[in-house]
């Protein structure tokens, strides 16, 4: 009886494990099935590199280049802002801060992660937008930069907590060895601790980017949603995620527009998949 129970529990756990993989595969196939249908009528080249997104025109224009570049510019902006900030914060928490400040900061960073993106979105809309507008004398404050700033805030908790883990798990003996050779604390941090934690640091950046590129709500509220080819970071752009969110509800099922949105989702899936893969590879690189 006991053995049977053991057997049963083992199999249930196994089943649960496989279920996770199954869901991912099912989602992928569902996306691929509808997404790839688009290419019966539109060539992949026109889809990927077409510069006009106007799926309601006749015939529909479904070039995603402006949306892809929109996502890219917002993501790059957010990365440029969040990585140095997050890295400095992680180094401070992991290496420099006295214990009570460390605990306080860690709790603060976790709290930052708990803020719903919609809240960041409306704070960005009411506070950040006007600031950006007045600072750069723009006709509108809803630009790629505004989105980048808000997304940077959302990426920072991910970046800080993973980097801080990586920095804290550097063996104490490295630090002692360096200090005992007469290196200063800062020399020790940047010549020994950061190189030793580099794989975790790269993974943190990757996961931060992954978080940013998939974010929808805040960018939809903050970037102005104009599907034009962006020239500077101070113009309204529209990201891939925002496009799907905004248009999915209004599209006719089975239309070219509908399939185009699925294909867009497929592109997003592939991008985040490779980013996660890169992060994973970076994390496991150390163990070779």
């Amino acid at each position: 009886m006991r053995r049977f129970k053991e057997f049963l529990i083992e199999k249930i756990i196994l089943l649960n494990g496989f279920a996770c993989i199954l869901f991912v595969i099912l989602i992928f196939f569902f996306l691929a099935k509808d997404g790839l249908t688009l290419f019966k009528t539109v060539s992949p080249w026109h889809f990927l590199f077409g510069t006009l997104w106007n799926p309601l025109a006749e015939p529909p224009q479904v070039g995603i280049l402006p949306l892809f570049l929109g996502s890219l510019i917002v993501t790059l902006g957010a990365t440029v802002i969040s990585v140095p900030l997050g890295m400095a914060c992680a180094i401070f928490i992991g290496e420099i801060a006295p214990r009570w400040i460390r605990e306080l900061l860690k709790a603060g960073v976790e709290l930052l992660a708990a803020i719903p993106s919609i809240v960041i979105g409306f704070i960005g809309m009411t506070m950040l937008g006007p600031i950006v507008k007045n600072l750069f004398h723009l006709p509108t404050g809803l630009t790629a930069l505004t989105g980048s700033l808000a997304l940077a805030f959302m990426a920072i908790p991910t970046i800080v907590s993973i980097m801080e883990d990586a920095i804290s798990s550097v063996p104490r003996s490295y630090k002692e060895g360096s200090l005992a050779l007469g290196a200063t604390h800062w020399q020790t941090i940047h010549r020994v601790i950061i190189p030793a934690a580099s794989s975790g640091i790269v993974a943190a950046v990757m996961l931060g980017i992954g978080r940013v590129i998939g974010e929808t709500m805040a960018v939809m509220m903050l970037t102005g949603n104009a599907s034009v080819l962006p020239k500077t970071i101070l113009e309204p752009v529209r990201t891939m995620t925002a496009t799907i969110a905004a248009e999915m509800g209004e599209t006719v099922r089975g239309s070219e527009h509908y399939f185009a949105l699925f294909a867009l989702g497929l592109v997003l899936f592939v991008i985040t998949f490779f980013i996660n893969l890169a992060a994973d590879a970076a994390l496991h690189q150390k163990q070779k």
Binding site: Y174, G177, L181, G182, A183, V192
Partner: peptide, 30 residues
């Protein structure tokens, strides 16, 4: 200056995760 003058060898060997060259060059470089 003190630690440059009074060096230490630890219980467990603790080379840095760097190349052999960079390990030796670490002190002179700093």
């Amino acid at each position: 200056m003190l630690r440059k003058k009074v060096g230490m060898v630890f219980q467990r060997p603790n080379p840095f995760p760097l190349s052999i060259f960079d390990n030796i060059a670490y002190g002179p470089r700093t």
